[in-house]
């Protein structure tokens, strides 16, 4: 199944174990990330891409590739 078909009407397959998604759930004012990166178009998420390539995903990495200061 290619990425486009996989994305249709589906949530990110890493949602359950994504620490950043857990933060998005805590605050309604940041739910744009969920719309833009966790649902439907999740294969463009940098966290998803790194995890799919077997790379270590830092907890503070945002879906757009930026990081938040800890």
């Amino acid at each position: 199944m290619n990425d486009q078909n996989k994305e249709k009407n589906s949530d990110c397959t890493h949602m359950n174990r994504c620490q950043m998604y857990g933060l998005f759930e805590l605050d309604d004012s940041v739910e744009v990330w969920k719309i833009l990166y966790c649902r439907g178009t999740y294969t463009r998420c940098e966290r998803y891409k790194m995890a799919e390539r077997g790379l270590r995903v830092l907890p503070n990495l945002l879906p757009n590739g930026q990081t938040i200061e800890v």
């Binding site: 933060l23 805590l26 605050d27 004012s29 940041v30 744009v32 990330w33 503070n60 945002l62 757009n64 930026q66 938040i68 200061e69 800890v70």
Partner: peptide
């Protein structure tokens, strides 16, 4: 962290 996330969200928007 939540505050930093809100700032990052505003910048991304």
């Amino acid at each position: 962290v939540q505050e930093a996330l809100q700032q990052a969200t505003a910048a991304h928007m």
